[in-house]
Design a protein around this nucleic acid. Sequence first.
RNA 1: UCCUCCUUAGCUCAGUUGGUUAGAGCGGCUGACUGUUAAUCAGUAGGUCCUUGGUUCGAGUCCAAGAGGAGGAGCCA
Length: 483
Amino acid sequence: MLTTTRYRISQLAAGTILNTQVKVQGWVRNKRESKNVVFISLNDGSTFHNLQIVGDPDQLGESLMRRINSGASLTVTGLIQASQGKGQKVELAAATIEVDGEANPEIYPLQPKKHSLEYLREIAHLRPRSQTFGAVFRIRHAMIFAVHQFFNNRGFYNIHTPIITGSDAEGAGEMFRVSTLDPINPPLNDEGEIDHSKDFFAKETNLTVSGQLEVEAFAQSMGLVYTFGPTFRAENSNTSRHLAEFWMIEPEMAYYDLKDNMDLAEAFLKDLVNYALLNCQSDLEFLNNRGEQEEQQKPQQQRQELNLLERLKLVSEHQFERIDYTQAFDILRNCKPNKKKKFQFIIEEWGCDLQSEHERYLVEKHFKKPVIIYNYPKKIKAFYMRSNDDDRTVAAMDVLFPGIGEVVGGSQREERLDQLSTRMQEMGISEKDLWWYLDLRKFGSVPHSGFGLGFERLVQFVTGMTNIRDVIPFPRTPGNADF
RNA sequence: UCCUCCUUAGCUCAGUUGGUUAGAGCGGCUGACUGUUAAUCAGUAGGUCCUUGGUUCGAGUCCAAGAGGAGGAGCCA
């Protein structure tokens, strides 16, 4: 039996395949019908572009026509040919149409019109069928692929660090408990506390907040490594850039100092943005136009100076500004908004933490491009960061992007056993629990560095989506774990 | 967790000082139409005004509590 070759719409949209019998399968975006001709916009997710199906209503029959509605799934065969109309290169002259799954137009939640992102969030199982989310998730995939390609090309190994862990990487941050104990009648110890020795792992365990400590063991053996996995934070954060479950990329490099670390972070971010510019053109153009329309709804003051494509090119074509904390502090202390007390937090004393408003000022107003701040005061940073010779700063660095703030946070790690041990005591971190981490400093310790990149924040930047909940398939936030 | 704002038709919203029968656009449905592009034109259906309680002769409108959402802050990635 002769079967027609099945194509994905991405293969046909280019217009190089013509006058060929093809089969396509996908979901109806829209149907436009008149007496003698019907047009169906079909999308199969392979590309932003829809394929225009052209049919003769009489030949297809009234009962079939009734079943073809927005959201229905179709298998269509026919001749692919140059389009008679404008707006698309090719169209498919339908010989046969089969309705695989109907979608009752009276109750199908996605209408052929613009929907708000808030509404689409409520129908997260259907939103990937919309133009915006199709574009976002194709780009998300491209970024995942580009991450692995970048590291593979540079000789890095991908390490899967554990998701269930017994250690708290930074001594801070609320964690999700993992337990199989009876929640109503848990076994108790002599002090009346929950007896975790009876639990599944015979100790208290949580979902990971970072794979860094574990991946350091692999950096100290395989040299160049990275993790790319899910991360969980039980913080009660309700913002457009926090999730309770998100994906993080954490490279860790033996024999890298802080400068090597910054060089890698900058090259990495540029590579990812370039990959998107080269490989996601039609999706980016759509999101760019979408973003510009959104901007026009806003009052002049709140509008962004650059559109999405300009912001991406800004990152890919310009060197990131690099300043140390002390320089950043001086700029901020002497800047107009600080002197006129426009900041909510006035910059006065060296050593204070930089707030969002300060970071935004440096990135968006002062330098107008990505900024890396390094050598932060010791007392505002984590225990594992390497002490500098001045004894008041550590070799930490943050990469700040316009619009989303901190996209990368990293440091050179403290490789000297004595210094690390002292820091842990000062900060009340248990040396007993992290015996193995200290072991890495006892046996063949080497200088090493690494950083963490919040993957969703990167996707936010590349797609221009302003809410992080719109760049992950099914967002988990406080009070929300639907789907 | 804190501050501000919002919740009215399937969706996006309007609704005057508290006053009779709560509106529009889009979407749906019906019909018309010479190839359309979120087609166009005509007609039509569609409401627990977020919930509970209160004030009042009378509440979509005022008050209180709660729920849900958005923006900002903190925590961070």
